[in-house]
Amino acid sequence: MKLLIKRIANSRSFILFRNYIGFRPIIFNPSYKKLKNVSVSDAFPWRTDSGYVTIFRYADLLQLFSKIEESFVELVFFTKDNRFIKKIEITQLSFSNEIIINNEFLNGIQEYGYFNIFHRTNSDAINKLVIANRCYIGFSIDGSPPSFVHGNSHVNFKSFDGEFSGSGIVLSSFFKNLYRIQNTFLEFDKSELFFVNPTPSKLIFFINNKKYILNRGCSILIDVSGKANLSIRSKCLFLRPTIFNYKNQFFDVYHS
């Protein structure tokens, strides 16, 4: 009986209904957890605008968890308008790894956007593993020591063998949801919110009643300097920005 109830509760139609009426909505699509041998990625922000360099640190999870040494990672970069920039594969992996994302690395682009990381292998020694590397992104301005923040949400996935991929992990509801950022920005010279659209479709959201539209895969930096309270309304059930705060020559990055 319990199994039956669990099955019904996790069924697509029941989740859609709960999310439609807003009753204990399900934020992440549970079906992706049932996939086999898949790497899930956040939409990690990168910045090369305004003197920024982004430092990305990640673990070799397949070596750590499954002792797979012949694995590699695939990194795919997009601009803020979801234009594809480049895809790289890194085959020489340590347990902890780092890459520097600057404008030379991104073909001279001084902008911002997002990227994904997927762990890949053709080894058949792995049994039904779904991993999500939260990773750490450090932001440095004009050579300053970096301020690090970890990944914020599951967005895209790809199978270890590269045979299939997908998105649509973050779900939406029929009605708009309120998300109040639980911090205040009064003490800073400048504050910015970095949003990446985590959904597979066009996203409309409001910050203190100002409307923003983000197409699929697009990202946006929004100046919210000096605001005491910030409320975000959207149908997306998990829209949490990365926050950049500035004061004098110092700055701080964290997730909301």
Partner: peptide
């Protein structure tokens, strides 16, 4: 901490890197 710049962040426990039931 370097040159008075500070970075502060936590790491996740290993089980948060795995989504599957195992």
């Amino acid at each position: 901490i370097k040159n008075n710049y500070i970075s502060l962040e936590h790491t996740h426990p290993p089980h948060e890197y795995i989504i599957s039931e195992n």
